[in-house]
Nucleic acid binder design. Structure first.
Length: 824
DNA sequence: ATTAGTGGTGTTTTT
DNA sequence: CACCACTAAT
């Protein structure tokens, strides 16, 4: 076969239509580099084309590169695009999220990492529950140390790479937190569970401590590519450094203007530090935007220009100005929703598919009103975020039973279901169990077994309940051997009594449906080709456990031996038209070739067998549970339908739409009030706004409401400062279809920085007929605080007091007898 | 010992 | 409003 000709043709096709900067980035030599990629500048394209180019020009074997993203969606997207560009099988490639890849590495080397093969991953809720248990057990004051905050503290330490012994505590409070951290950590180890941050920290430590493993991965991954680099935290930064060593090239793509995850430990400073710490030779800026029309882009540029802390970058487009940005001021959140419904209908009527329309908001709570309006209007929509599938309580209950089947020492799982459905085990019994477990240094499960079994004696009622529970789980475990994953879940749902329980519940129909959906999800997962990725990781674990283990694995696995793996990899290469690469070691540089191959061989279930006598079906179960933790799943099923897309601005990062509605643009909401006091908080909110604006290709709506129901009460807000930062010439004011009288509004007022106040409400309710000259919703002026709006009032005559929202100056109660307030 | 009912509290963004 | 912790009734 004339390989050279094919290769030449493919190469030119790959690099077609790249602009000079993109081309330079894609074809950089093997050295670390930072690509400063603005919104819509073809970031993902550059990343994936670079991967394809490296493979296609034989600079690297597909298995010799590592590509890291933050979201599962981004990882999937990358794999899809790569397979679209090259006729290769992406299976087995290390492309995934930090957490996913760390998990994969830990599964492969669980012994060296000090974890049981069956280790589970707790989500945030589990983590908080565990912290709470630790605090209770050790008599920590729950008033002074809130479980949520403490869990957050622990994660933050891990994100910084700090174990309890390394945290610097200068005050009692911190010392106590560290103490809880220490207990938490010990408990996790006892139970064989991890949390999100632990995956990466543990993986980091594994690489740091174990030279053989470190060198293995360093030899393998000649090219490391990182997406959304601005979102990396310190630990992830160090993790990358460790894998890269001094030889491997790290291709980092990021945009400091889109850094919106500092609350989760992300450090924009990592982008600056990269150059120095990774010896980056090159920095390339991608500034041509291919997404948005001129007006939208200009608005984004001006907006982000208000930030001081920037690496500096200015997007441009060759597109025309396009439509003006539409601005709508509603009186209420309800009216805002109505307006959006109208506009969406118009868009739909002009032929815009609803999946091309996004409805964005700052916080999940805002989706309710919008959903209500859309539902009433009969417009199909899909909400991202919020409570996701695997986070629903019925799903977590079912999964907890499965977790116990996989690992009975998982205390969190046990506590979740030991009395659900209720079987007469109350707080007191559980407490006794916990005492026994602590005394014996065992898991709750072990305590439950000895309690139910040996300690016969008195005819305790709780003993019966616990005994029944132990029996149930044991029976489930027996039943689960030798059946498929969906069958296991079916068995759990039936035997545990979950189905019966929810059938009896008034609102249980949805929950039953979700449980059935879980069985479906498991069936799909069992057939999912993506899952093979994980399978292969296990094949690798044999390799890294040395020749003896490898030999054992070969025997035990039957179909899987090193030769088969290599044959498989070669076959894939041949199929891809890379016959000259077949037989080449991974990475194209090293020669170890330690079974870094795909290992399904047509009998995937066998790949995980051997070594620790974990049954294939159990292996699948463990993978499914990891999957459930790491990818919480979407929360609504009908993904294929043409539906309006509802999501937070955070969730929208990386996406683009024909039309975008950014709603709730009010002071206190966006920018969010919680972010106003900390340094850099507003700048991060502004970056978030920048993300929202740059999602739109052709049409952008900015909406806000003067009053809004939030947490059960009406709040009177003023227009977001971000709206004022957008040049008026780019905006077009819209009115609702039913024209309300003219009159100035908060948006028309003089744009002094401190006047984020006024709102005009036409029919404000009268509070007090006599002795109260002001009405709720009325605009007022105060000599010191500036313009504001009345949001509450009480008393009359000389006792009369009003509560005024002065926007940036805050919300204040003022006594009319003293404060001189004028109607504005 | 469990459950149902009540009252207080607090709220961003997510792998 | 939604979630928790606590209390009173079973």
């Amino acid at each position: 076969m004339p390989t050279r000709i094919i290769r030449g043709a493919m190469q030119s096709r790959l690099l077609e239509n790249l602009n000079p900067e993109q081309l330079a980035a894609v074809t950089l030599p093997r050295e670390s580099a930072m690509i400063l990629a603005g919104a819509g500048s073809g970031k993902t394209r550059v990343l994936t084309t670079r991967i394809a180019w490296l493979i296609e020009t034989r600079q690297v074997n597909p298995l010799g590169l590592l590509a890291v993203t933050f979201t599962n969606k981004a990882a999937r997207e990358m794999l899809t695009r790569i397979s679209g560009m090259l006729p290769i099988n992406t299976r087995g490639m290390w492309v995934g999220t930090f957490h996913g890849l760390a998990n994969r590495m830990l599964r492969a080397h669980h012994r060296d990492a000090g974890l049981p093969q069956t280790f589970q991953i707790m989500d945030t809720a589990d983590q908080v529950a565990m912290v709470k248990r630790m605090m209770k057990a050790n008599g920590v004051d729950e008033e002074r140390f809130k479980p949520r905050d403490t869990a957050w503290f622990i994660s933050a330490q891990k994100d910084a790479g700090l174990r309890p012994g390394s945290v610097e505590a200068f005050d009692d409070h911190t010392r106590q937190l560290v103490e809880i951290y220490r207990m938490y950590e010990a408990q996790c180890q006892r139970e064989g569970v991890t949390d999100f941050a632990e995956l990466i920290l543990r993986s980091y430590e594994l690489l740091a401590k174990n030279e053989a493993i470190r060198e293995h991965y360093r030899a393998r991954f000649a090219h490391i590519l990182v997406d959304e680099f601005q979102d990396t935290n310190r630990l992830q930064f160090d993790w990358l450094k460790l894998i890269a060593g001094s030889q491997n090239a790290v291709f980092a793509v990021g945009d400091d203007d889109q850094s919106v995850y500092s609350f989760r430990g992300a450090k924009v400073a990592n982008m600056r530090d990269f150059e120095r710490e990774f010896n980056a030779g090159t920095i390339i800026k991608l500034e041509q935007n291919y997404r948005s029309h001129g007006n939208i882009l200009e608005a984004a540029n001006v907006l982000i220009g208000h930030n001081q802390q920037r690496l500096g970058k200015n997007l441009w487009t060759s597109e025309s100005q396009g439509e003006p940005i539409r601005l709508f001021e509603a009186q209420t959140d309800f009216e805002e929703a109505q307006f959006i419904v109208e506009q969406v209908r118009d868009l739909k009527a002009t032929g815009v598919p609803l999946v091309e329309v996004a409805l964005l908001y700052r916080s999940n709570a805002q989706s309710r009103v919008l959903e209500h309006a859309l539902f009433s209007a009969g417009l199909p929509y899909r909400v991202y975020g919020g409570l996701r599938f695997f986070e629903r309580q019925e799903i977590k209950h079912a999964l907890a039973y499965l977790r116990l089947v996989a690992n009975p020492d998982d205390d969190a799982a046990l506590l979740r279901v030991i009395n659900f459905p209720t079987r007469g085990i109350g707080a007191r019994s559980i407490e006794q169990l916990q005492d026994a477990a602590r005394a014996g240094g065992t898991s709750l499960w072990q305590a439950a077994c000895s309690r139910g079994g040996s300690k016969g004696g008195a005819s305790d009622a709780p003993k019966k309940g616990i005994e029944g529970f132990v029996l149930l789980v044991d029976r489930l475990r027996n039943e689960c051997s030798g059946i498929t994953l969906p069958e296991m879940i079916e068995a759990v749902i039936e035997r545990s009594g979950l189905r019966t329980h929810y059938e009896a519940e008034r609102e249980g129909a949805d929950r039953i449906a979700n449980l059935d959906e879980l069985v479906n999800a498991a069936a799909q997962f069992s057939d999912d080709p993506m899952r093979m990725l994980e399978m292969e990781a296990d094949a690798e674990s044999f390799a890294s456990q040395g020749p003896t283990a490898l030999a054992a694995a070969r025997q035990a696995a039957g179909t899987l031996d090193a030769d088969a793996v290599e044959a498989e990899a070669d076959a894939a290469m041949m199929a891809a038209g890379f016959e000259d690469m077949a037989g080449m070691g991974p990475g194209g540089f090293d020669g170890d070739g330690e079974g870094d191959g795909a290992g399904d061989g047509g009998t995937p279930a066998n790949a995980g067998g051997g070594v620790e006598s974990v049954e294939p079906a159990d292996q699948l179960l463990i993978q499914f549970l990891s999957h459930a933790s790491l990818e919480a799943g979407d929360n609504q099923a009908n993904a294929g339908d043409d539906a309006l897309q509802l999501m937070t601005v955070h969730a929208a990062k990386g996406l683009e739409f024909h039309a975008v509605f950014a709603s709730g643009l009010e002071e206190g909401l966006f920018p969010h009030e919680n972010s106003l006091d900390d340094a850099g908080g507003v700048e991060e909110e502004r970056r978030l706004m920048y993300v929202a604006v740059t999602r739109a290709r052709r049409r952008l709506y900015l909406t806000f409401a003067q009053s809004r129901m939030l947490h059960g009460q009406t709040r009177y807000n003023v227009a977001s400062r971000f709206l004022r930062e957008i040049p008026v010439k780019l905006l077009k004011r819209l009115s609702p279809t039913y024209e309300r009288g003219g009159g100035s509004t908060s948006f028309d007022r003089p744009r002094t920085p401190s006047s984020y106040a006024p709102v005009q409400v036409q029919a404000a309710p009268k509070v007090e007929a006599a002795g109260m000259p002001f009405r709720i919703g009325q605009n007022v002026r105060h000599a010191k605080f500036g313009n504001g709006v009345i949001i509450d009032a009480e008393g009359r005559g000389t006792d009369a007091r009003v509560q005024v929202n002065f926007g940036r100056e805050g919300v204040k109660w003022l006594a009319l007898a003293y404060a001189k307030l004028d109607a504005a």
